[in-house]
Design a binder for these strands. Structure first.
Lengths: 215, 215
DNA sequence: TGTACATCAGTGAACGCGCGTTCACTGATGTAC
DNA sequence: TGTACATCAGTGAACGCGCGTTCACTGATGTAC
């Protein structure tokens, strides 16, 4: 029967409306940016009155927080799925790029301009570790006998950000480098800084990737 | 006497108030993010009434646009100053990092989350070219006899984004790579994604820089 | 040097707006006997 | 199976707020003769 846990019809309805609200929220963010997110506007577009949404989210900030959590979760899942289907580092990178292009504002929900006052919920750090762990699995094939830089020694002492992954220091370094380089190309592409420059961003992405995969 | 052009006292006063408004705007952006920018709030903090600001800026969007232009201009000036004092690529990179750390929200005004509807004013593309040109000057010392990748051939055909700088294709590629890699590290650092990870972001930045300077 | 006029910075009142959020209420859906 | 009650989704009115922006006006500063 594959029931979704043991949910009453009411609970299933609740989940469905919550999902629909988030869908509209994502659409609104994609159209006008996250700062333009408005509960009233969402309600209007759903054909409901404004206060009705308060049955589903305690506040506007609550909704945004959940969207951020969802974004992290979605990226971690995409990563895990790519890793489990046996792809290597390039495969993982392309999964990342596809995920980002699929919904740029979702990417920026995680990696975009920080709002000075705001602090992401605590549980996303766990998801972030999961993401870094997957990345680390894929970038672990490095010769371990190269001399360590002071930076890599430093790295080896703190590896909780990758779920205490037991990788050699050079691999930790490489995973970090992967992250920053791919993000560098990707975020500039998504923000439109390459438009009108006359080259294909995918080629630049692949060029960076090639240097990461075979240094 | 080094007069500032031929400005009447009134014009000088005007410029000064305009500058003061922008200063408060930057402070407000630094405290609560660009989306929280409010003309009324600025006026209040300056001890003026709200409508007074309309003598200086036609609208809120006008003010933001000018702040973005200023940010580009400021970065181009910092770059040019660094280049003119005879520094090499690492020097330029450190100037970039210092400029970014000095006011992270100013950095994000240029490279942060794009607002879906908004289009930057046309004249910033000229400043952007100036920035890329300076970067290109500093990264031009490459052996030109390496085989060109298809991507580099593509690059060589469109170089208006660097003010039609007559650099070899490999140098164009390298300037782009500089840009994306440094931005990758810098934007993640500024957004706080490295906090709690237990390493010094400056070391990661320098590590990337070392690989760029001596590939 | 003094007077008449033009320029322009800044004010206060007012406009309409949409926002987040609260509250008392209605009506439908589910539960217990 | 039917009735009595509890749960809960959704409504409409209302709150206070701060926003961007316009407008007619005052008063100070500069200009021309």
């Amino acid at each position: 029967m594959a029931e979704t846990g043991t949910k009453t019809p009411r609970e299933r309805y609740r989940d469905q409306v919550r999902a629909e609200i988030k869908e509209h929220a994502r659409e609104q963010i994609g159209t006008a940016g996250a700062s333009a997110l408005s509960l009233n506007a969402i309600a209007k577009r759903m054909g409901m009155s404004g206060p009705a949404l308060y049955r589903y989210f305690a506040s506007r900030d609550d909704l945004i927080t959940e969207l951020i959590r969802d974004a992290y979760r979605s990226l971690a899942d995409a990563f895990r799925a790519a890793a489990e289907s046996g792809t290597d580092l390039p495969g993982l990178a392309h999964a990342l790029r596809a995920w980002a292009l699929d919904d740029p504002q979702r990417y920026f929900l995680i990696y975009g301009t920080p709002v000075p006052g705001y602090h992401a919920p605590d549980d996303v750090t766990g998801i972030a570790s999961e993401i870094m762990g997957t990345l680390l699995d894929a970038s672990a094939g490095l010769p371990a006998d190269a001399p360590l830089t002071p930076f890599e020694v430093d790295l080896a002492a703190h590896r909780h950000w990758a779920g205490d992954h037991p990788a050699p220091p050079a691999a930790l370094h490489r995973a970090l480098t992967c992250w920053t380089r791919l993000h560098g190309v990707l975020s500039l592409e998504l923000a439109g800084h390459f438009t009108g420059m006359g080259f294909d961003p995918a080629l630049l992405f692949d060029s960076e990737l090639a240097e990461l995969a075979a240094p």
